[in-house]
Structure formats: C-alpha cells, structure tokens
C-alpha cells in the first residue's frame, strides 16, 4: 500500500515537473531569441541559435543604447518605490483616523474609497490626464500624487479592515502615558500593522510596476518612459520593427520582476492570499 502511494506521488511530481517546464517555456523562448540576429527571429522562433544566427549580446546593446531602456528601468523603479512608500504612509494614517473617529465626513470618505475600487480606469482616464496636465503633475514626481489618489481606495480599505481588529486599549494606554496621536500611530499602531503593510505594499508594487495606461497618459513621454511604455514604443512605431531589440527589452523587463519575486516570494504569496480574502 505504502509503496503504491509512493509511486503515485513520484508520478505526480514528474508530471508537474514537465508541466512546470512547459509553463516557463514562453519566457525561455524569448530568452533564446534575444541572442539571435533580428532577421532570424520571425522566421524560426523555436530553433536554438546556431553559429549563423547567434549575435551574442548585441540586441541588448541596441535596446539599451538606441531605445534608452536603462533610463526606463530607472524611472519605473523610481515611480514604483516612491508611489508605494507614499501610499503606505499616507493611506495607513488616513485609514487609522477614519476608523477611530466616526463623523459624517469619515464615513463618506470610507464609502468613496470603497466605491473607487470598482471604477474602471477607462472611466477617468481622459479627465485624469487633463487634470494632470493642468496641475503640472506630468513628471515622475507628480505621478506619485496621482497614484496616491487613484490607488487610495484599495489601500485605505485594506488598512481599515485591519485597524478594526486592533484593540482600542493599547492605543488608549499609550495616549494616557502621554503620547501624541502621531507618536501613538508611529510607535504603537504601525508595528502592529506590519503584515498589512507588507500585503498592501506588494499588491501596489505589482500594480504600479506593470501599469501601462496611467503613466502613458499622464507622463510627459518625451522626457520620461516606464518599461512598459518603452516596450510599446519599440513595437508601436510601425515600419521597421527591430525584433532583436524587442526580445532583449522583454528579457530586461522580466528580470527585475523575477529577482523581486524570488527574493520575497513568501511575502508575495501571503500578500495575495490576504488581499484576496479581504477584497
């Protein structure tokens, strides 16, 4: 009986291994093609590079030099890190306040935040880009404010859910001992909420890093591009499309994501599960 179960388990493991390889095959194919000369990519995408088709890292050099991919990566990192930090600090403070103080204003604000979560971006995209234009927010610094505004809904909602579960007594004790509300928040509430910070931070990071349309419409594209925008520009400018450079760009876009994923895989998977249960 035990032997049979063991065999079955091995069978399952082997089956999943094959599936796993098939699952990452698309990325491997792109990786393989990124080392081929551009004319051979469309013709024979599934063949390994041969001596005739191999070009080394030339595609990567083109992508970086001609299409300024490194600066796109830099701006994406800047926008993502900046926005996520600002969102975490501002929305958690806001969520704490509107859960602890019940007035008509805070109730309304909470409802509006929940409401904003269901509104599709297409509804506000045109007017949002107008607002950004008028207020001079078309820079990577300005877009952080836009992300705070548009991403506030989900973050406030998730933080509120957690604040409700914190017993009031802890905060009261701190305040009686003479803490100001600010000090109470930063040295008592914030440490308790650490898991929620990680969950929200990961969800927002995944969203902002990969977002295309919002930065595409808001940013001044002559000066700043994110990775998604840079890739779309390489392909979108019809005429001569440099497939080699695109393959290299795709790989350069995927590498940071995979590194980030492998580094904090546990938190990501927990964050997703937690976010979904509350959402």
């Amino acid at each position: 009986m035990k032997g049979k179960k063991n065999a079955l388990s091995w069978f399952g493991t082997i089956g999943f291994s094959i599936m796993g390889v098939i699952y990452i095959l698309p990325i491997l194919i792109v990786l393989m093609n990124s080392f081929k000369k551009k004319v051979f990519i469309n013709k024979e995408p599934f063949l390994l590079a041969s001596a005739k088709t191999f070009t080394g890292i030339e595609n990567y050099i083109t992508a970086i030099n001609k299409y300024e991919l490194l600066s796109a990566v830099g701006w994406t990192v800047f926008i993502t890190v900046g926005s996520v930090l600002v969102i975490l600090v501002c929305t958690s403070m806001c969520a704490w306040y509107i859960t602890r103080i019940t007035t008509r204003f805070t109730k309304l604000l909470y409802l509006l935040c929940v409401f904003s979560m269901v509104v599709p971006f297409q509804m506000v995209m045109f007017t949002l880009s107008l607002v950004a234009d008028r207020t001079g927010l078309r820079t990577p610094w300005g877009i952080i404010i836009i992300y705070l505004g548009f991403g506030a809904g989900l973050a406030v909602f998730m933080f509120c859910g957690f604040v409700k579960s914190i017993p009031l007594e802890i905060e009261e004790a701190a305040m009686i001992d003479g803490c100001t509300p600010l000090r109470t928040f930063f040295s008592v509430v914030l440490p308790i909420m650490k898991p929620t910070y990680i969950s929200v931070g990961i969800l927002e990071t995944m969203w902002i890093w990969n977002d295309f349309l919002l930065p595409y419409l808001v940013l001044d594209l002559n000066k700043y591009k994110t990775i998604s925008i840079a890739v779309q520009y390489m392909k979108g400018s019809y005429g001569r499309v440099d497939m080699g450079a695109i393959m290299a760009a795709l790989i350069l876009a995927v590498i940071p994501v995979i590194v980030f994923y492998l580094a904090c895989q546990k938190h990501i998977i927990k964050g997703v599960a937690a976010g979904a249960v509350k959402g």
Partner: peptide, 22 residues
C-alpha cells in the same frame, strides 16, 4: 486636532486623482 496630518494628504490626492476626474 491632528486631522490635517492624518487625512489631508490622502484626501487631497483622492480628490485630485479620483473625485474630480470622475
């Protein structure tokens, strides 16, 4: 008394980034 520090940044950005465009 701390309302401006806690709520205003998010509130203003929310007005600008969501309510007005909507």
């Amino acid at each position: 008394r701390y309302m401006p520090i806690f709520v205003l940044p998010t509130f203003c950005a929310f007005i600008l980034g969501f309510i007005i465009p909507f």
